[in-house]
């Protein structure tokens, strides 16, 4: 390999960038990284923690390898790995990303005992009857009456929202929070306008007019361009 450098360290004002070559073997790279880092900090004794960003180029790093590299960098004093950037991801991971971003939809009724689970957003054109349940990793939009249970952001997304033409849910869940319908007479709750549910600053699920949604969750708008 001669004197070709596999690890390059660059200093920026945000910390270090560790540029790793993507052509050499992983073991070679690891050894060189250890060696480089040990030379670098003979005298560094200040308490400042400097963040380091790893750039792996076109090399795929598995989870274990990422952990290993983080450990190596961390074992040097006063360095901590901010992020690992690689141009390569697995097809599985890419497909998962697609699933999390796409909106699935059903035209029909979710009846008692039926559970629909999607990783991304979910659009239902129809009702959710009592005993029926929707679980979505993202937002839930219902063009119909929600009488059952809706769980938005079920993998931990606290920004997820639930929107329904008519909200008479038996339960609303967002991320790990839960909200139960008040024990009112069902008939008194009818004739509502369109509503949305989200988690507010006090870590509570609140139900509000649909019109407030553009202010509390501006990220839902992903249309780019002038109106």
């Amino acid at each position: 390999m001669g004197n070709r450098q596999n690890v390059m360290i660059k200093g920026t004002k945000d910390g270090f960038i560790l540029k790793l070559d993507d052509q050499c073997g992983y073991e070679v790279l690891k050894e060189e990284l250890i060696e480089k880092l040990s030379v670098q900090y003979k005298a560094a004794d200040d308490q400042h923690v400097i963040s380091a960003k790893i750039e792996a180029g076109n090399r795929y790093l598995s989870e274990e390898q990422q952990e290993e590299l983080k450990e190596i960098v961390k074992s040097q004093k006063s360095l901590v790995v901010g992020e690992i950037h690689s141009n390569v991801i697995t097809i599985d991971f890419a497909e998962q990303l697609i699933r999390q971003r796409e909106m699935s939809s059903i035209a029909g009724i979710i009846r008692s005992g039926q559970v629909i689970e999607v990783e991304g957003d979910f659009l239902l054109i129809g009702d959710v009857n009592p005993g029926g349940m929707i679980r979505a990793g993202g937002n839930i939009y219902i063009l119909g009456t929600l009488k059952g249970v809706a769980h938005a952001g079920c993998y931990g997304n606290e920004d997820a929202v639930i929107v329904a033409s008519q909200m008479i849910p038996s339960q609303l869940r967002i991320s790990s929070l839960l909200n139960r319908a008040p024990d009112l007479d069902v008939n008194e709750q009818e004739s509502h306008e369109m509503e949305c549910a989200y988690i507010d600053e006090t870590e509570q699920i609140v139900v509000d007019r649909l019109q407030v949604l553009r202010n509390v969750r501006p990220d839902i708008t992903n249309y780019r361009g002038g109106i």
Partner: peptide, 12 residues
């Protein structure tokens, strides 16, 4: 009616 709803779902 709740049970009927469940059955309708299964029949569908």
């Amino acid at each position: 009616v709740r049970d009927a709803d469940r059955i309708v779902g299964l029949l569908e």
